[in-house]
Every structure is written in C-alpha cells, then in structure tokens.
Write a protein that binds this DNA or RNA. Structure first.
Length: 290
DNA sequence: AACCAGGGTGATG
DNA sequence: CATCACCATGGT
C-alpha cells in the first residue's frame, strides 16, 4: 500500500472526472468524492487536491523496487507531458479552443496495451455504459481478486485463451466475444507479440493489430493511442466523424498531427457531452444547410 | 460496392 | 411502450 500526492505544474489542473470518465478508460467510478478503479495491475483511489491530486495505491503484486509504483502511476497519467503548453497550442484553433475551455482537465492515459486491446474490441458499435458493464463482468469472472474481492485485475491473455465462447456468454458481449477470444489466442500463442508494437513503425503496428479478427482501423487506432502511447493516432468514431463533418469541413488541421489523438480526446468529450458543441444534432438533415 | 447482422442497454419520445 | 443510437467490422 502506498500513498502519493502529485502537484502539477503552475496553473495546470487535472480533472479526474474528465480524465477517468471521458470514454478512454472503462474501469473507474466515482466513490466518496474521489475516483476508484484499476490502473493496470494496481488498484488506485484518486482524489483532487488544490494543486493536483493524490493517489492511494494497492498493488496486485509486490513492487519491483521502492519508487517503481509511483513511477508507474506517473507514467499512467502521463505526468511528464506539459498539458498547459499543449492546451495553449490547441487553442490556436477556434474549435479546439472551445473544446479545451469546456473540458480543460482531460489527459490521455497510458493504459496497459492488452487491456486496451480487449477494451476497444468490446467497444465497437457499443455505448460506454454497456462497455463498462461487460469489462466489469469480464474482470470479476476471470481476473484475480484484489483487496478481498472488491476489485479484480484484468484477466491476462493466457487465461482468456483457455476459455470458450460459452464461458464468455455471461459477459453479454454479443458478437464481440468471438473477437475477444481470437485476440486472446493470438496473443497467448505468441502469434502477436504485443510488446513489439512499441518500437514498430506506426503503419506496421496498425497492420499487426488489424490482422486480428474483429479489429479494424478504428479499434487499432484506439489501442495504439490509449494502450501504446501513440499520441499521433486519431481514432474516428461516429462522434468524431460528425465533428469533422460539421466543424472541420476542410479537414482536421495537420498542425497537431504529432498529438492528434489528444486533440481527438478533447473533441470527443466536448461533442458527446456539451449540448452546444454540434449544431442541428437531430434529424441529421444538414444537406440543405442551416 | 452498397447493405446488413450481431446483442443488449440507455436515451428519447 | 416502441424506437433509436451506440468510440465498427466482417460477410454477403
């Protein structure tokens, strides 16, 4: 058990609600004024402080060395990235300026690659509430209990590979269950070595992921962005496509290409939750203009 | 090259 | 209570 307090750069703020509940991670929930959930193999309880946030951490296994836990969690929240500078850069674009002003506390997390692969396989043609339910049942059923069973680790590929579609039925993942099983078998057998994706050129990494049954370009980009720290990946879901069509008829500016995925996260949350973000949302009859 | 199923849930009316 | 949309993809 460990307790850390993080103080962020001058004037910089993280909103745990915006970061942990903006559709990038599916295992956190608001509890007693803070947020609780699993960050990789660690249970964390996070709470905001005037200058940043504090983390209470229970590790599933012993830490490699003193300080490794804190180091890993700082990496998870990508605390090395200067978000104040990044948001200033985004704000040169009028649309992104609105998105950043609307949800200034968003950060893109660096999640576990395997968990991100499974999570975004399960996310396809699905809504966030149900994705959370499926992942929660997946971990409760096949993960290892932590802290007396209140939380569970994310099941590893070997564990899932040994299961059948019938075993997965209680998850109510629908047609996505067979994709999950295929991914688990390909990873467990070594046919796809996830750790090689980090050093791979982006196109090769994309190709490796889309070679999996049920993984297309959108899911692959989510996995690379959220699970492998590829901040240049720009997943295009229905919300982002809508946003691009209505707010960027000329296309998304490539001035931000190195961090397009982070811009995407601001846009996604803005368009999904701010009623004024997208005009004429009902009917979708924008052919004749407003 | 356009549809279409697949599964279930929350939002909407 | 019915309809609809949903952080897509593979098959036809």
């Amino acid at each position: 058990m460990a307790l850390f307090t993080y103080t962020l750069r001058h004037g910089e703020h993280i909103s745990l609600a915006q970061t942990l509940d903006c559709g990038q991670a599916f295992r956190f929930k608001a509890v007693n004024g803070g947020w609780e959930g699993m960050a990789g193999s660690r249970f964390i309880r996070a709470a905001e402080t005037p200058d940043g946030f504090s983390l209470l951490c229970r590790c599933a296994r012993e830490c490699a060395h003193p300080g490794s836990c804190e180091q890993d969690l700082a990496h998870y929240f990508d605390l090395g990235r200067d978000y104040a500078a990044l948001k200033q850069r985004f704000s040169a674009d009028p649309v992104l300026a609105r998105a950043v002003a609307y949800c200034p506390g968003i950060r893109v997390l660096r999640q576990d690659g395997w968990e991100a692969l499974c999570s975004f396989i399960l996310s396809q043609n699905n809504n966030i509430a149900r994705i959370k339910g499926i992942i929660s049942r997946l971990c409760e059923s096949f993960g290892a209990p932590i802290d007396g069973g209140a939380y569970h680790t994310f099941p590893d590929a070997q564990t899932l590979a040994s299961l059948t579609l019938e075993d997965l039925a209680p998850l109510r993942a629908g047609f996505r269950a067979k994709y999950l099983l295929d991914a688990a078998r390909r990873v467990a057998s070594g046919a796809l070595a996830l750790d090689t994706l980090y050093a791979m050129p982006l196109d090769s990494a994309r190709a490796a992921l889309t070679s999996l049954y049920g993984v297309g370009p959108k899911v692959a980009d989510c996995v690379l962005l959220y699970g492998f720290g590829r901040m240049e990946c720009f997943p295009r879901d229905v919300w982002i496509r809508r946003a691009l069509a209505q707010l960027y008829p000329q296309g998304f500016p490539d001035a931000f290409s190195d961090v397009a995925g982070i811009a995407q996260q601001f846009l996604f949350h803005y368009c999904r939750t701010c009623p004024d973000a997208l005009p004429a949302q009902e009917g979708q009859e924008e052919k004749a203009g407003v």
